[in-house]
Measured scan of single mutants.
Amino acid sequence: MLYRITVRNADGEKLEIVVEMSEDEVRALAEELRKAGYEVRVEPIPEGEEP
Rank of each mutant, 00 (worst) to 15 (best):
Glu39Cys: 04
Arg27Asn: 11
Glu43Ser: 12
Ser22Asp: 06
Gly37Arg: 01
Arg27Phe: 14
Val19Met: 06
Ile45Met: 08
Pro51Asp: 12
Pro51Thr: 11
Ser22Phe: 09
Val26Gly: 01
Lys14Met: 11
Val7Phe: 14
Lys14Phe: 11
Gly12Leu: 04
Leu29Trp: 07
Asn9Ser: 09
Pro44Leu: 06
Glu23Tyr: 12
Asp11Pro: 03
Ala36Trp: 14
Glu16Asn: 08
Pro51Met: 01
Glu39Leu: 07
Gly48Glu: 06
Ile45Ser: 05
Val40Pro: 02
Glu32Ala: 10
Ile45His: 07
Tyr3Arg: 03
Glu13Trp: 14
Val19Tyr: 02
Lys14His: 12
Tyr3Val: 06
Pro51Tyr: 00
Ala10Thr: 08
Ser22Gly: 07
Ala28Ser: 12
Asp11Ile: 15
Gly48His: 13
Glu25Trp: 06
Arg8Asp: 04
Ala30Glu: 05
Glu43Cys: 12
Arg8Ile: 10
Thr6Val: 09
Arg4Glu: 02
Glu25Ala: 15
Lys35Tyr: 04
Met21Gly: 04
Arg4His: 05
Arg34Thr: 08
Glu39Ala: 05
Glu25Val: 05
Met1Lys: 08
Glu32Thr: 15
Leu29His: 03
Lys35Asp: 03
Glu31Leu: 10
Gly12Gln: 03
Ala28Thr: 09
Met1Tyr: 13
Glu49Trp: 09
Pro44Gly: 07
Arg8Glu: 08
Leu33Glu: 00
Asp11Cys: 07
Glu47Arg: 12
Ile45Pro: 03
Glu23Gly: 07
Leu15Cys: 06
Glu49Leu: 15
Pro51Val: 08
Glu16Val: 06
Asn9Phe: 13
Glu13Pro: 07
Glu25Gly: 14
Glu49Cys: 07
Ala10Met: 07
Ile5Arg: 00
Pro51His: 09
Pro44Tyr: 07
Asp24Cys: 04
Val7Cys: 03
Ile45Leu: 13
Lys35Gly: 05
Arg34Gly: 05
Leu15Asp: 04
Ala10His: 14
Val40Leu: 02
Tyr38Trp: 06
Met1Phe: 09
Ile17Lys: 03
Pro44Lys: 12
Met21Ala: 05
Ala30Ile: 06
Ala28Phe: 09
Arg8His: 12
Lys35Arg: 09
Glu23Met: 10
Pro44Asp: 03
Pro51Gly: 09
Arg41Leu: 13
Gly12Asn: 05
Gly48Arg: 15
Gly37Val: 01
Val7Ser: 04
Val26Ala: 08
Gly48Asp: 06
Leu15Phe: 09
Glu39His: 13
Ala30Asp: 02
Pro44Met: 09
Glu43Asp: 10
Ile45Asp: 05
Arg27Thr: 11
Gly37Thr: 01
Glu23Trp: 04
Ile5Ala: 00
Pro44Ile: 15
Glu16Cys: 04
Lys14Ser: 11
Glu20Phe: 12
Glu43Gly: 03
Val18Ile: 11
Glu39Val: 09
Ala30Tyr: 03
Glu16Gln: 10
Gly12Glu: 02
Glu50Ser: 13
Glu43His: 10
Val7Gln: 02
Gly48Val: 15
Tyr3Asp: 01
Ile45Cys: 05
Asn9Thr: 10
Glu31Lys: 07
Tyr38Met: 05
Glu25Gln: 12
Ala30Ser: 09
Ala10Asp: 06
Leu33Asn: 00
Glu32Leu: 14
Glu23Ser: 07
Ala10Phe: 07
Ile17Cys: 04
Ile17Trp: 15
Glu43Lys: 04
Leu33Cys: 02
Glu49Ser: 11
Glu49Arg: 10
Glu32Tyr: 13
Glu49His: 12
Pro44Phe: 07
Asn9Tyr: 08
Ala36Leu: 10
Leu2Gly: 05
Val42Ala: 02
Arg41Thr: 14
Val7Pro: 00
